[in-house]
Amino acid sequence: MYKGKSSAIERVFDNLRKNNQKAFIPFITCGFPTLGGFFSLFEALDKNGADIIEIGIPFSDPLADGPVIQTTSKIALENGINTDIVFNSIIKIRKSSDTPIAIMTYFNTIYHYGTGRFLKKAKRAGVNGLIIPDLPLEEFTSYRSYFNRVNIDNIMFASLTSSKERLSAIAREGKGFIYCVSVKGVTGIRNSISPEVIDFLKNLKEITNLPLALGFGLSNREQINQIKGYCDGVIIGSKILSLILEADSFSKGIKEVENFTSNVSNLLKS
């Protein structure tokens, strides 16, 4: 349950809730399209209303991701990005921004680095939360103590297929917010929202006080208008990354990301 001292991520939601506003949580892959380009992207998001920024450490076999994040991960790895470079990049970002940062990566990246060592380094770099798509409840419990030791939020997933008992357990174990997956599927752009998502969010609201952020498949205004009344935040990754992938030039892409970010942010703040 939502108890104890709230974390930096939870405080973002607390403040927004007072004004009935929702959080915008964009996702970008560290090292995409280049390391320099990643810093520019981060700044574009940060300056245009992102409330929390999710940074991906690229992994060779991203099971939960669709074609866009597979592509950005591959490009980042080809650019030589590794876990240490990601930490150093966040240290650099922290010199000019205190926007909460959550790292998204697959568990092997963390385990191989050493779970304790990874969490300590992440904390020292200024990371506030961790999102690990392939570490469900059953496995997380064995590593829980590492998270408690450094006070980094373990952001857990809730899916349309999770049973009520599981959702309660997820709400007990999770911190920061609950990452609600809006589709049966992997990350990537969809144009609509399934009606069962609203019931799913309503059910979750009854189970937990933790903020609910909806992600996977979100990309447009209609979707956001449909769901924003039922959740506390929106996570968008593939759409933002595809703006860069599809742009004629990086500078044009950045411009589009800036516009997109401020539009989504305004929508969520109104």
């Binding site: 798509p133 059953e138 999770s162 599981r166």
Partner: peptide, 27 residues
């Protein structure tokens, strides 16, 4: 609960095994 206890017994060979998968696949 019972579900998790039986899982712990059957899903591992020592420390190996488990279900390191996205939440949506767990059910």
């Amino acid at each position: 609960g019972k579900e998790y206890r039986s899982y712990g017994r059957n899903g591992y060979f020592g420390e190996f095994g488990g279900i390191y998968v996205p939440e949506i696949l767990v059910s």
